[in-house]
Amino acid sequence: MHESLSIRVTTYALLAIFVFLVAVPLFWMVATALKSNKDLYEDFSYLPTRPTLQHFVRVITREDLLTNIRNSFVVATTTTAVTVVVSAFAAFSIVRYRYWGREWVGRLILFKYLLPTAMLFIPLYTIVVAMGLGNTLKSLMLTYLSFTVPFCTWMLMGYFRSIPPELEEHAMVDGCSKIGALFRILFPLSAPGIVASAIFSFTLAWNEFLLALVFTSDHTTMTIPIKLSMMVVGDQYIWGQLMAGAVLASVPIAILYFLAQRFVVQGLAAGAVKG
């Protein structure tokens, strides 16, 4: 009982610290989005003295930010869907099968990460143009796979390995095929890991900058990070719009996180019932 009390106190104390650390910069972003230009460019103030929604209105009506949010959403969703399937199969194959070369494929796909994107965007763009995908969202969906798939494959390998293979072996003894065991045993048990991987893939695709900058060239195909970067106009940060845009762009993905977190908990509950 004594220990449990001290644990609770520590937990809530740590939670308070973390919430504070995360909240300060977020607070500043939201406060900036609500400040008038006078507050922003002339005097310092902790809170907006004359709160205004003008920046939000402007980025939606004049900058048509919702189009860019939709573009990002389409790209990130498609990329994530493909990524989860492809990398779950790949991870399953590497972890649960035994054949020559599987480990090397796993290592080689990591080579994508060994060079900075600044070195890779030129050949990738050559590929994109050769496929006739210049200035399309498809070019992003395709090339984003080159960094989401290795990432998620490795993450899922980690999660799959944490689950004892005996569970699947039992099922297979009961007449389940190997693939059947994947769908019935491994996927449900590693659901939190799969959701986490999906979140990673989504976030990586949502925030990617350099490839989107190079591959797309007009408003209809621009993703949200590119659009936001255009709000640094010349030698001037358009702070109000920039932050309003960033806040707006973060809402869909924040909701997604929230929902996904619930799913992680449900996944846990489902696993517990089985156990």
Binding site: I122, T126, V129, S217, D218, G234
Partner: peptide
């Protein structure tokens, strides 16, 4: 006509890739 607004600091990566990809 297709117009792209290109900020100065992003001009170089874009034009570099465009030249190499012949687009």
């Amino acid at each position: 006509l297709q117009i792209s607004m290109v900020p100065l600091k992003e001009f170089l990566p874009k034009i570099t890739a465009a030249i190499e990809a012949k687009a």
